[in-house]
Structure formats: structure tokens, C-alpha cells
Design a protein around this nucleic acid. Structure first.
Lengths: 344, 344
DNA sequence: GATCTACATGTAAACGTTCTCGTAACTATT
DNA sequence: AATAGTTACGAGAACGTTTACATGTAGATC
């Protein structure tokens, strides 16, 4: 049974003063006598007063809510980003409302179309991997809702974006493979059209170019981001005409999938085929052999995205910004050619 | 720059009718002529009308928000639970507002104290592992806010709870170890006072009892839930007077920690010391040897919790319910005594 | 043709705040 | 003592909806 909660009116009645004064006492300090203020505050805590955000939101034309649209949260990267977002939001008294698209464009569109600036102060979004119409986001932006994209950003929309340095990360990954003695390097990556996919692919080509190493179209496989996709891609590479001696995966899940597939085919990972991933998912330390990878600043991406969004919310004319955070190489067993492997 | 959005008044003005009629046309179907209704709907879509939830919330005394309090989301179990929650919430047009406590009682208390039934229709909560005062939750319930606990539930609070069958899961886990030939079985578990910890511990003792197997106090180690805790606990067991030949871990993260620690000490997992976990985290298939475990119905726990909460929200006198979902055994390599181990 | 009923719509209060204005009571200035 | 300025507070509108109640119109009933 829902009880009636304490309102500003209750406090006013108890003290025999007006609601206006109570409101001021609760918020501003000016224009109200210290003693009055104290009395109000005392009664407020005594009656366990909590502001009604519907009411404040209605009059101030703002909720303290920011929406977060994300393909999935059951993976290290995204859940860490959200943790970062949440951290900043909490510090600034903003709530985060979570929308999970399950990486489906239909869900994404349905969700976004239902959003409005009457229920949200701003939006943080990571688009689903198969989305290619972005008008639903553009509409929201045109309506005046501040939007910041992260990780999977939309190139054609002008707004703030936060991502890791995909190009240099990929470059480092491939360079590491080359320096470790691999020279038939394949790349299993995400769907086309995603800026992240493009940039990592570009980094891959750039590194090959710089070291004068050949690549073949069949060595670049576009598919999804899951572990299963990684397994399938690896099998495809193994079954091809030219079998590579190293695989650069667009993320650690795919890299792990590839490692599992290779192991099942009795291929010694590292020794025969090197594998490097991208993310620094904790599984990269658990899989055997442990996985070399490019560490993404997931938490920082969350922090930065949310900070940027808050700036947009607070200054209506804050200029859109693109933030690129550094990635860094972590070398483990999967890119080392003859290691004294630890037992199993 | 935030634009003014379309309101019900705009629609009324365009059509020269009253806001009441527009409101009715938008919601009920009765008491408004079909043609009028159609005109309203047409204008609404044309002007891209979206209801202002602050306003509706204010008058209906309800937001469509449910809060979710959770220690962390960067792990398989919790992120999957949330995905389940989100699924039901979305289907029922409820938003979920996410609060992450980082497993800290101070954060939890601060967050809960700021909550109120003017901003939330209900709350789903999983308490932090070190919390032992629960008055902050009780206060909220006393205020009339529907609360459903999941996983880590609070025994002393009367409200709906959803959890997996911890007792039987633990029983199965230990039974499996026994049937695989282990008989010096240790248990590394979570903090005392948590119902989940207690129930799994009880299941552990019950299985040992049933098979007439001895246990020793030093074989039951209470600590945190992290992988690191698992490593430390395992080392403690190895360094003890009586070294066990099997470890039942309260969750997969700790089990993985234990496996890693054992491997570093050149102990053959499975062969020499069996390990079984709890959760069925995807890492359990990736770690080597693969980890036997008790699969928790994480997604279903999310679904069920949210469904239950919605019932509480909709029926103010809905009776509190305790739901216990089944866990099931998944046997892999870590509990098999001599396996033809796959290459590394 | 008067009354009754049903239907479709309008009027206005209410939800809990914030905030602009107005104003009484002081204090300061001359 | 008259005036101006300051301080602390109140009145009331506004935010966008919903909803109880009132009202007007049309057809049905006698």
C-alpha cells in the first residue's frame, strides 16, 4: 500500500510559512533567514522529506536522467563502460536509464523512437552492429536532445563521440605479430560500415604496408563480434587455400573463439599460429595460452562519455567533440613462438 | 539548444478542441468519437508528440521507473540477471534505472537513502556482500515502495525474494566431487551472514553428511567473491596442515582463481585436486581444464524478479513470495580424475 | 412536445515544485 | 521625520497531464 509522502506543503503547514519559502530554504540559501532555513531543514529531515522529481522535472524542464543505449551488457567491455558512466552520473546526481538493444536494429529503433527530451536530459549511445539507418538518432538530436556516441559511433552524425584509438591499436597488434616472426597475417573483424571496424582494418593494412607484408582478400573476414563468430572465422581460414600463420581478431571474444577452434584442430596456438585480440577482457588472462591483446580504456570511455554529455546538458552551445583514448599493447603467450608453456 | 516539444495543448489548439478530449483520445477509446480520435492521433504523429512523463507521473503518482540496485555488473551472473530484468521491463514499458554499489555498504546506503517512491515505482535489489544493517531497505518498504530482492536476499526483511536453489546446487556439486572419487573436500565461500553463503554451506555439509565424509573447520574459508579471493583461499588450503583433494567454490570466479593458483603450484587440476564452481560463467568453458559447475538460471532470475515486482506494483496487496529457481549440474574436466587432457 | 437517456465534449482542479513579482517591515540616509 | 534601500517572505502562475464533474446536443420514449 503506497503511502502519501511528505511534500513541501507539509513542511510549510507545520511551520506556518509558505511553500515558496520552504522551497528556497531547501535549495538556495539567499533570501531566507538562517533560522528559518534551519527550521525547514529540521522539519524536512524529521518528516523524511524527499523531493518529487516529477514535479521539479516538470517545472525545470529537466529530469535528472540520462539514457544509455547499448547492444548488450553481458561482456566485459560494455559492462565496464557502463560502470564508468554510472560513476560519473552518480557523482553528479544523475540517474542512468539503461536500454539494451540486444544488437538488434529493430529494438534500437523502437527504443529510440520512444525516447523524448521530456523524459531524458541526454543520451549516451553505442549503436547496434547491423544498424545502417541513423535517422532515429538524428531526429532526437534535431529535437534538441544532447547525444554522445561511444565505441561504435556513427560517422555521419555531427555530435560528440568517444572512442579508443582503433587505428593505432590495430597497428600495434599487427606490428607485434610481425615482430614476433609471423608474416601471413589474417584479420577477423566486425561488420562493414562500422567506424571501429574500418579503423582497425585500416590499422591492419597500414602495419602490413609499413613492413612490406602481403595480404589477401580471403584473409580479411567480416562477421559478428561473438566468440562463435571467432570460431567460424578461424575454421574458414584453416580451410582456405592459403592458411595464415597469425590471426588478428577485432576483439578478445573472437580471438578466444579462434583459439578454441585452433586447439580443437590440434594446432599449437602461438607456436604454429599466433593470435592477438583487442579489448583486454579478463578471459584473455584465463584462456590457455593466455591471449595477447590491445587493452581498451573501457572504464575511461565510460567516464569521458558521461562527462562530455554532462557538458552538453549544462551548456546548450557546447561544441561537439571527438575524443580518442589511447589503447595499449599487452603481450602474453598467444603471440610468442616458442614458449615454455605452463602445464595445460 | 533545447526546443519546445509538442504538448497536448498544441494538439488541442490545432484542432480547436479541449485538452481533455485530446488526453482521452490519446489514452482511452471510450467517451470520444472515432473521428475525433483519429484526427487527434494524426496530428499527434504529425507533430511528433511524445507524452511528458513528468506530467503524467505527477498526476498519476507513478513514474514508470523501476530501480535496480546491484553490487557490480562486470560479471556474467549480474549482467545476465539485468538483461532478464530489462527484457521484462521493456515489454511492460517500464524503464530501469541502474544503481551500482561496487559492493560497498556505504554506497548502498547512500543510494538507497536517496531513493523515494516519488521517483520510483519499485525496486529490485541485490545487497552488497558486506552489508549487515538493512534498515535503509526496511525504511523504503515502510514508505510503501515495492521491493523485490534477488540472489543475495535479506532474510530479516519480509518482501518477495527470488533466488536459485543454493542448497541443492551445493549438494549436487559436492556429491559430484564425491562420486568422482574425491573425499577431502574443502569449500571456499562468501562472507558469512549472506543467505546464499549459508545455503551453499548447508548443502556442502549435507552432502558430506550423507556420504559419511569428514570435514574440518580449516577447510571452510569465508572471504569475498572475486577471482583474487579464490586464488588466496586456494593458497591457504595448500599451505594448511591437511591439504584437501577437492575444492568446491561458491562461484566460478573463485573457482577459476583457485585453478590458476593450483596450476601455478604445478598441481594437476582434476587429476590431483578436483574443482567445482557455481554459476556457469562462460569462463568455465574457457579455463583449462574446463570447469565443472552448477548452472544458475541467471536470466530467469532477472525475468522472475521483474515480473514479481510488477505484480507488486500493480496490486498493492500482492502477497510477498519467495521463488526458488532450480540449478543444474554441468560436469566438465575439472572434476574428472584422469582425463585425456586436450593439448594445453 | 415534454422529458429522459446516452453520448461527446468542455471546464477546472489537482499533482509538487519553482520562480517572478509584489510587499511589509526594517535599516540607513539625509 | 521623510525617503530610499534592503531583507525576508507570501501570492500565485506555470510546467503538462489526468479526471471528476458539468454541459450541450441528439435521439428515444411517453
Amino acid at each position: 500500500m503506497r503511502k502519501r509522502y511528505t511534500t513541501i506543503k507539509d513542511i510549510a503547514r507545520v511551520l506556518g510559512i509558505s511553500v515558496a519559502t520552504v522551497s528556497r530554504a531547501l535549495r538556495d540559501s539567499y533570501d531566507v533567514r538562517p533560522e528559518t532555513r534551519k527550521k525547514v531543514l529540521d522539519v524536512a529531515t524529521e518528516l523524511n522529506y524527499k523531493p518529487n522529481f516529477n514535479a521539479t522535472g516538470l517545472v525545470r524542464q529537466s529530469t535528472h536522467n540520462i539514457g544509455v543505449i547499448i547492444p548488450t551488457i553481458t561482456n566485459y567491455y560494455f559492462s565496464t563502460v557502463i560502470t564508468g558512466i554510472q560513476e560519473v552520473a552518480q557523482r553528479n546526481d544523475f540517474n542512468i536509464i539503461l536500454y539494451i538493444t540486444n544488437d538488434s536494429p529493430e529494438n534500437e529503433i523502437r527504443i529510440v523512437k520512444n525516447l523524448s527530451l521530456s523524459s531524458l536530459d541526454g543520451l549516451l549511445a553505442c549503436v547496434s552492429s547491423q544498424t545502417n539507418f541513423y535517422t532515429h538518432f538524428q531526429d532526437l538530436i534535431d529535437d534538441g536532445l544532447p547525444v554522445v556516441f561511444f565505441d561504435r559511433v556513427v560517422p555521419t552524425i555531427h555530435t560528440s563521440k568517444v572512442m579508443q584509438d582503433d587505428f593505432n591499436g590495430a597497428f600495434m597488434a599487427v606490428e607485434t605479430l610481425i615482430k614476433s616472426g609471423y608474416n601471413k597475417i589474417a584479420h577477423i573483424t566486425g561488420p562493414k560500415g562500422l567506424q571501429l571496424t574500418d579503423n582497425r582494418l585500416l590499422g591492419y593494412y597500414a602495419a602490413l604496408d609499413q613492413y612490406g607484408i602481403a595480404s589477401y582478400p580471403e584473409w580479411v573476414i567480416h562477421s559478428g563480434f561473438s566468440q562463435k563468430d571467432g570460431e567460424e572465422d578461424a575454421l574458414k581460414l584453416l580451410g582456405g587455400e592459403r592458411v595464415p600463420d597469425a590471426i588478428f581478431a577485432v576483439n578478445d571474444r573472437k580471438a578466444v573463439g579462434a583459439i578454441l577452434a585452433l586447439k580443437r584442430n590440434a594446432i599449437k596456438v602461438g607456436e604454429e599460429i599466433g593470435v592477438i585480440g583487442f579489448t583486454n577482457d579478463p578471459i584473455s588472462e584465463i584462456v590457455s595460452p593466455t591471449l595477447s591483446t590491445i587493452a581498451e580504456p573501457a572504464y575511461e570511455i565510460g567516464l569521458k562519455s558521461c562527462e562530455l554529455l554532462l557538458k552538453h546538458i549544462r551548456k546548450s552551445h557546447f561544441e561537439a567533440q571527438e575524443v580518442i583514448l589511447e589503447s595499449r599493447l599487452i603481450q602474453r603467450e598467444s603471440t610468442i613462438r616458442s614458449i615454455s608453456r605452463q602445464s595445460s
